[in-house]
Amino acid sequence: MPAPTAPPETAGAAVPAGRAPARPRPAARRRAAALFLLLPALVALGVFFVLPLLDIVMRSFTDPEPGAGNYLSLFTDGYTLRVLGRTLLVALIVTVAGVLLAYPYAYMMTLASPTTRAVMVTVVLVPFWTSMLARNFAWMVLMQDGGVVQGLLSLVGLNGVRLLGTTTGVAVSMIQVLLPFMVLPMYSVMQQIDRRLLLAGQSLGASRLSSFRKVYLPLSLPGIVSGASLVFVLALGFYVTPALLGSPQGALIAQVIAVRTRELLDFGGAGALGVFILVVTLISLGVSRRLAGSGAASGAAHVMAGGGGR
């Protein structure tokens, strides 16, 4: 298990400055060193990310003409409104299905023996780091007309179900592609739940089911919330899957942004759509932080980073 070596945020370099040994390093010098070390990364992020982002936000209000026209047209022109609605619906379905699939899996991870658990972590991490394109291409092969999925469906009597080019097909493969993002935060929360609480509940007369529902479920809620918000946010702005498996008629926001940016060079209109996604993203993450704290997300980040290289 590539467990993080220390719980995030507790250990650290938080050595009280006043209690330094032999040669106390002045706080000012320490701060200067910190700034010097951080500066290159912050400048890079500023130049290649923050400033361009502010620029696009500006342009969404000024291009082609000053005002909130780009935003008004999001909600007034029927096409964009349908795209927004479809995207929110797909993101919601992917999130709910993701929770239903990831929860039992993450729960099983906490019960499994160390070896089985290592296997289960690998099963989640390998797709997480495997080429997004390879995984979507695989779905394309499986879902094509006359392909494996259609064959399986016709075995159970569903003939001629089309998946490639439909929103259903996009949703199914997005569920699979995004599932690791759901499992990891859930697992990192469940790992810390003391299972004796369940036994305590049962010894006090609760049934297995109700002690699970009243004790375990509430304790695992932060994991659900942070996994769900992460997947919801990723699904909202997902481009590769809908572009490869969907159709222009069933476009999601990301496809519309791509067309407006690359083909129409309409940075104002694309910017307004982008800002819309950004606002929904920040709201979802804010809500998730409120409800779940940041522990689950950073725990998941450690599992991801730890499993990749060490």
């Binding site: 990310f49 361009p52 481009y239 926001i253 940016t261 982008g274």
Partner: peptide, 20 residues
């Protein structure tokens, strides 16, 4: 700030960087 690129949707980053 340093971790923010992880949570911002890629499509938005692509749009922003392309325009810059």
């Amino acid at each position: 700030l340093l971790l923010s690129p992880i949570i911002i949707p890629h499509i938005l980053i692509a749009l922003v960087i392309f325009s810059a």
